[in-house]
C-alpha cells in the first residue's frame, strides 16, 4: 500500500469525564475515501476537529503527507491542504455564493495585505470561484446571497469553498446532514465525482451514502474505534451490527 497521506495514532480527547475520542488510530491512503461512522455522540466531529487543528488532542499524534503536524494550528494545516466542511453548514451568509468561493480562493492566493484593488474585480479570484460553483451545480446561483440558498445548496456551496482552497485532504462532516433524499443523492453523485482526486475523511450517518462512496470504514462507539476495514468486512462484522447497524435487519 502507498504511504498514507494521513495517519493518526492514539488520538485522545476528553471533555470532563467524557472520552470524546479514545486512542483513535486510523490511516487514509492517497485518493481514498475513508468513512467514519458511529452513533450520535460517538466522537466523530471531535475527531474531525482534532484533524483540522481546531481542537488540541490530550494525547496522540497526527502525521500528514509524511510530516508530524500534531502541533500545527488550523491555519497551518489548512495551508498544507487539509480542508474542512462542517457538520453545521459554515458559510458567509451575507456574501453572495460567488463571494464565498472567491474568498476561499483568496485564502490560497498569497497574503491579503492588499488594500487598493477591489477584490470583486480580480479575475484571478473570481474566475476559479465561478468555475468551482459550476462544478458543484451552483453556476446559476452565483450572485445570490448565500443566506438565501436552500439547505442543500448551502452545503454544496460549502463544499465548493473547501474545494476552492486546493486541498489534498477533505474532512467532510456529514455532507448530507439534513438533506432530503434527492438532495442527498445529488451530494453523493458530487462526491463520487471527486473520488480519487482527493483523499477524504467522510463522517456520514446515511449508510447508503457510506457504502456507495467509502473505500474503507472506521466505526466509532463512545469515542473508541470498534472496527475498521473494507466495507464488506464492516457490513459483516457482528460487533458492528450489534452496536450500530442494527441486528434486527440481517442482510441489510
Amino acid at each position: 500500500m502507498a504511504e498514507p497521506v494521513l495517519e493518526t495514532s492514539g488520538l485522545t480527547k476528553r471533555f470532563g469525564g467524557i472520552v470524546a475520542t479514545g486512542d483513535v488510530s486510523l490511516s487514509v491512503a492517497p485518493g481514498e475515501i475513508h468513512a467514519v461512522i458511529g452513533p450520535n455522540g460517538a466522537g466523530k466531529t471531535t475527531l474531525i476537529s482534532e484533524l483540522s487543528g481546531e481542537l488540541k488532542p490530550d494525547a496522540g499524534s497526527i502525521r500528514f503527507a509524511g510530516a508530524d503536524i500534531s502541533r500545527f494550528g488550523p491555519v497551518r494545516r489548512a495551508a498544507l491542504g487539509i480542508a474542512r466542511a462542517f457538520q453545521v453548514t459554515s458559510i458567509f451568509r451575507e456574501f453572495t455564493a460567488l463571494e464565498n468561493v472567491a474568498l476561499a480562493v483568496q485564502a490560497r492566493a498569497g497574503h491579503s495585505f492588499r488594500f487598493w484593488r477591489p477584490a470583486e474585480r480580480e479575475a484571478q479570484l473570481r474566475e476559479p470561484a465561478r468555475a468551482m460553483l459550476r462544478d458543484v451545480g451552483l453556476g446559476e446561483r452565483a450572485d445570490l446571497p448565500a443566506g438565501s440558498l436552500s439547505h442543500g445548496e448551502k452545503r454544496a456551496l460549502e463544499l465548493a469553498m473547501v474545494l476552492a482552497t486546493g486541498p489534498r485532504l477533505l474532512l467532510l462532516d456529514e455532507p448530507t446532514a439534513g438533506m432530503g433524499a434527492e438532495e442527498s443523492a445529488a451530494m453523493v453523485r458530487l462526491l463520487a465525482g471527486l473520488k480519487s482526486r482527493f483523499s477524504v475523511v467522510l463522517v456520514e450517518h446515511d449508510m447508503d451514502a457510506v457504502f456507495a462512496l467509502a473505500d474503507r470504514i472506521t466505526v466509532m462507539v463512545y469515542g473508541r474505534v470498534i472496527a475498521s476495514g473494507a466495507p464488506e468486512a464492516i457490513r459483516a462484522d457482528p460487533e458492528v451490527r450489534r452496536a450500530y447497524l442494527g441486528d434486527e435487519e440481517p442482510g441489510c
Binding site: 489548512a78 456574501f95 474568498l103 491579503s112
Partner: peptide, 26 residues
C-alpha cells in the same frame, strides 16, 4: 477602497464567520 480590497473582504469575512475564515486558512 480598503473595504472593497482583499483586505476589506477578509475583514468582512471575519465579521461574518471567523471560524470559517480560520478553517479556510486565514
Amino acid at each position: 477602497r480598503i473595504v472593497r480590497s482583499r483586505f476589506g473582504v477578509l475583514l468582512q469575512g471575519v465579521k461574518s464567520n471567523e471560524r470559517r475564515m480560520i478553517a479556510l486558512g486565514f
